[in-house]
Design a binder for these strands. Structure first.
Length: 599
DNA sequence: GGGCAATACTG
DNA sequence: CAGTAT
DNA sequence: GCCC
């Protein structure tokens, strides 16, 4: 009866856990504003608040600490409801998501990004408390201005405190902040004109009919850096013309709608370790959809605050269905999953090794194994390799090694130096996991463009030649040279010093009108991108690395066959974007900083 | 029972 | 087109 | 795989 024993012991620990957790809202004495949250949600929040030791206040009292409200509520409305003129400075006005997410986690999370009222300059007007547009850069300084002793995590992020990338962000990143009211009529006019033109170039990407920035043809318009007419008003205008159901704020079940959580302690490692082995197996099988299911499930489990003790408990976790619940139950009751015993470990090992060769995937790996090859030496000696795979094999060890941030900085410096020598105004920014502030990176992703909308042209080829001349760029895997505006390099680079490793380097050059979408795409994470693109689609929009369009119609069954030439599908109207925040705003999302997109 | 991101290369 | 990559 |  080992199962019984186990459930008894775990019950006790569970109880202890719960007792501790009871306290986690003890310092929260809050008013919950129903407006914008809805009856149901506010009732749940109220109940949970009390269950976990917090106090619910009906009106402001001397010891009230928090006001919990919908992030969409206007300050004026809030004051009306509370029957006050200004928010007392000792109160933290916080987005209800803060409480929701704290409850999910079973512990208080940092209030920072959920803070709805920035204290530094008290706002008097009915400013919309819109994080998406205010948080962006000032946040750090503003939000921590006030007391928040409840702060839990000393939130030391594991990342090296490298502020390099903070100085890098191009001006455009900051644009929404500098919120000018000028609604840039010039821009609007020209873009409307262009919209009507159908520009169906064969290869044209889905931005072919996007607005070209005024200056590429005519040019009384010169974009100077301080002419930052933020797109905000235009985005709002677009939004105002959309049906309400497409402008609604997505629930936090969307990965792109919530900040990626700080790593919590995984209390179910015994489970996830096994599921990861299974996942790997399906990955090697090329079963991408099953892999996707596992990915989401494993992530949910890792974020689950308690040890899972019953099948029901497991099945109640999002992304865990009956089948995974059964597996989990087998693991927790037997400590083992029999399915693993049926796996041919030699084959699995070989598959794992082979698919780590750049350019080789499950199909290739299986072929090799079918030919009786099992080790890298076998491959070296006998396998037939295409060009990519031969490079992948040549640098097998180096490519599978993580790159420390510090080295990414060095690599970026080389590229920036060369780029700047070609054209001083080029913007060069490192994206990918580097921009998401990971301590190490798998490769280096560099995005290049020019704010004047045209000087990026030609830079790519010159850059490549210079980098090759320096023996910095040592291999070119893929050289995508789509048109005068779009290039992409997948290559290999090495810093000059002896003993440096060969690193995977990606460079993309894009026209400035695509800056925001490119930056968003290239920054990832992959999961984040997929989530956001799916959301866009649900809202009848279309998001790619080139543009975001509204009013997209797809054939019911053939949505994935959205191909350029297909007249039956309307590709919608591209919306000009100047910064990532514009895209978030269009999708009704709160802005997330790169580090919060690490899902 | 269908959908799960969107693009672009290689061979 | 299948496979691999971003 | 999961979700709708």
């Amino acid at each position: 009866m080992s199962t019984k024993d186990q459930s008894i012991t775990s019950k006790t620990t569970n109880k202890a856990d719960r007792h501790q957790e009871k306290l986690f809202l003890a310092d929260v004495k809050a008013i919950i504003i129903e407006a914008g949250l809805g009856k149901t949600r506010s009732a749940i929040l109220k109940k949970q608040l009390i269950v976990y030791g917090g106090q619910y206040h009906r009106s402001i009292q001397s010891d009230t600490t928090h006001i919990i409200a919908s992030k969409n509520i206007k300050l004026a409305r809030l004051c009306t409801i509370l029957k006050i003129d200004t928010i007392p400075s000792n109160l933290i006005v916080v987005d209800a998501d803060w409480l929701s997410q704290s409850l999910t986690k079973g512990q208080l999370i940092d209030v920072g990004q959920f803070n709805l009222v920035k204290r530094v300059q008290p706002k008097t007007t009915s400013v919309q408390l819109d994080k998406a547009l205010t948080k962006d850069d000032n946040a750090a300084t503003l939000e921590h201005g006030k007391k928040e002793q409840i702060k839990r995590h000393s939130d030391a992020s594991p990342c090296t405190d490298n502020s390099d990338h903070n100085e890098v962000p191009p001006a455009s990143q900051k644009r929404p902040l500098e919120e000018k009211k000028i609604s840039s009529p010039v821009w609007l006019k020209i873009k409307r004109g262009r919209f009507s033109k159908t520009n169906t170039k064969k290869r044209a990407i889905d931005n072919s009919n996007i607005i070209h920035q005024p200056l590429d043809s005519d040019s009384d318009y010169v974009e100077s850096d301080d002419d930052n007419n933020a797109n905000t008003s235009e985005i709002e205008m677009v939004l105002s013309q959309l049906p309400a159901k497409y402008t609604a704020k997505p629930s936090s079940s969307w990965a792109c709608a919530r900040p990626s959580s700080l790593p919590v302690k995984n209390r179910n490692k015994h489970i996830t370790d096994i599921l990861e082995i299974l996942q790997k197996k399906y990955e090697n099988l090329g079963d991408q959809w099953r892999v996707k299911g596992y990915t989401k499930a494993i992530s949910s489990i890792k974020n689950y605050p308690r040890e899972i003790t019953t099948r029901e408990e497991a099945e109640a976790i999002p992304n865990i269905g009956k089948r995974l619940a059964d597996k989990i139950w087998e693991i927790i009751s037997c400590g083992h999953l029999r399915k693993l015993d049926y796996m041919d470990n030699d084959v699995q090992t070989a598959l794992n090794v082979f698919t780590k060769i750049w350019g080789a995937g499950p199909a290739t790996a299986h072929n090799w194994i079918a030919q009786g090859l099992y080790t890298l030496d076998d491959i070296r000696a006998k396998a037939k390799l295409n060009y990519h795979q031969s490079i992948g094999l040549k640098y097998y060890d180096d490519f599978n090694e993580r790159i420390p941030r510090a080295e990414v900085v060095e690599i970026e410096a080389v590229i920036r130096e060369e780029a700047t020598a070609i054209e001083p105004g080029l913007e060069v920014i490192t994206c990918g996991s580097y921009r998401r502030e990971k301590p190490t990176c798998g490769d280096v992703d560099i995005l290049i463009s020019h704010p004047n909308g045209r000087s990026h042209q030609g830079a790519y080829h010159k850059l490549l030649r210079r980098l090759q001349a320096k023996d910095f760029l040592t291999e070119i895997l893929v050289n995508q040279d789509v048109d005068i505006d779009h290039q992409k390099l997948l290559g290999v680079c090495k810093l000059p010093e002896e003993g440096r490793k060969y690193r995977r380097l990606d460079i993309i050059v894009v026209p400035y009108r695509e800056w925001a979408c490119s930056l968003l795409y290239f920054t990832g994470s992959g999961h984040f991108n997929r989530s956001m693109r799916l959301l866009a689609r649900k809202k009848r929009m279309h998001l790619s690395e080139h543009a975001i369009s509204v009013g997209v119609l797809r054939k019911v069954t053939a949505c994935s066959v959205l191909k350029y030439g297909n007249q039956k599908l309307t590709r919608g109207t591209p919306v000009p974007t100047k910064c990532e925040a514009d895209i978030f705003a269009l999708l009704g999302l709160d802005y997330l900083e790169p580090k919060d997109r690490d899902c």
